[in-house]
Amino acid sequence: MAIEQTRSFSRAAELRFVTQSALSRRVKSLEDWVGVELVDRATYPVELTSAGRRFCEQSKESVGALTEVRSALRQEARMPGRSIQITAGHTLSLTFLPKWLKQFHQRSGDFNARVVAANVHDAVIALAESNCDLMIGYHHPLVPMQLDEDKFASLTLGQEAFIPVSAPNGRGAPMFALPGSSASPLPYLAYTATTFMGRVVDVILNSVDTAYHFRACYETDMAMLLMKMVVEGYGVAWLPFSAVSEEIDAGRLVRAGGDEWSAQLEIRSYRAIANTNPTMQDLWKSLEDSVNRGA
């Protein structure tokens, strides 16, 4: 259905929040299951075959029926009273969201919230597929979200620094200080390559003029796990300031480099423009008012 809409494998992959190669594999698996070719790969722009058009029309009816059932079931499963469902990044769900929810309870009155922590990829899918009313995540202008601005609105809730940190040595200096050297490369605790924060680190490293020397020794997609590894002295990692502020105040972590090794991240909220949940609409109006007042 996405290929029919866009007539492009690459654009369809963006709409479905998967890589183009993953989408191609899924289409091939579907064709193997149906037993005929559904996409004419010899045309440009891409077109469906006659069998593909028939299959797509029937698929729309099936997806529409399933979507209606899903909507009814979700409505039954919603928390009672005024309620919203929020999907937030793992780090923000621990550092930002509790205080933010308390603030807006005070401004908007009581409402119930169901919060799911997820990585950026899963959070975007949850919003795009109406699995949540509100998504809260980080934003960087060079690592944009693939969300259609005609369908989704966003507001900036705040900013925070994204900084390199290390455990301190006996003198209070970083045990592993950037940029390292060829003779003594820094043990680097990295995000997996496809994560949002991993791509932000790439942006930082591509922007500095100084040569750096790393040896990758650990990789994960969770910032809080990297923070624990840094505290234990395994190496240097980039982390949102909110995730490490207590550790820095306690002297268990120190910055491993100056401002040139850091970036500013926006904290943004996202919603579907078509969302009709009255609690969501009230909260969004309150958010807009706060942003306009500079609160």
Rank of each mutant, 00 (worst) to 15 (best):
V231P: 06
A274D: 13
K151R: 13
Y212M: 01
I267S: 07
E246T: 12
Y188T: 01
A167E: 02
Y191V: 06
G235R: 00
Y234E: 04
V201R: 00
D249K: 12
D282N: 13
P187N: 10
L189K: 04
I204R: 02
G180T: 01
D209M: 14
V231T: 13
Y188I: 01
M197R: 10
I273D: 11
R252T: 15
L253A: 09
T279L: 05
D221N: 15
M229I: 08
L226M: 12
D282A: 15
A167P: 03
E260H: 02
L253D: 02
L189C: 05
D150H: 14
T195H: 03
L225R: 10
L253H: 05
N206M: 15
M229S: 09
T276V: 12
D249R: 15
M222E: 15
M227G: 07
Q281R: 15
A173C: 10
D202R: 04
A216V: 06
F196D: 01
T192S: 15
E260Y: 01
D249P: 08
M222Y: 14
V236M: 01
V231H: 10
D150S: 12
A223M: 10
W238F: 08
I248W: 07
S166M: 05
S166W: 00
A274M: 08
L178C: 13
S245C: 12
E266T: 12
A274P: 06
A190R: 00
R252W: 11
S242A: 12
Y218S: 01
V230T: 04
Y188D: 01
A256Q: 02
S184Q: 09
A161Q: 06
I163Q: 00
G172F: 07
S245N: 09
V231L: 13
S269T: 13
P174S: 07
A237Q: 03
M175S: 11
T220Q: 09
P164L: 01
A250Q: 08
V254D: 04
D282L: 09
N275T: 12
P164C: 04
C217N: 08
D282S: 10
D150I: 10
R268K: 12
T192V: 11
V244R: 02
S242T: 13
E260T: 01
D202H: 09
A177F: 07
R252H: 13
Y188N: 03
G180N: 04
N169K: 11
E246I: 12
E260I: 00
A263P: 09
T210R: 07
Y191N: 06
L225C: 10
A263R: 07
V165G: 02
T192I: 12
K228A: 15
R199K: 14
Y270G: 04
T156A: 12
Y191R: 06
S207Y: 10
G172V: 07
P168I: 03
V200K: 05
G158I: 10
Q159D: 13
Q281A: 14
A272D: 08
L157D: 05
Y212K: 00
P278V: 11
A193D: 09
N275L: 13
Q264I: 14
F241M: 14
E266P: 06
A161L: 07
M280R: 15
Y191A: 05
N277G: 13
L265K: 07
S154H: 11
E247M: 10
F162C: 03
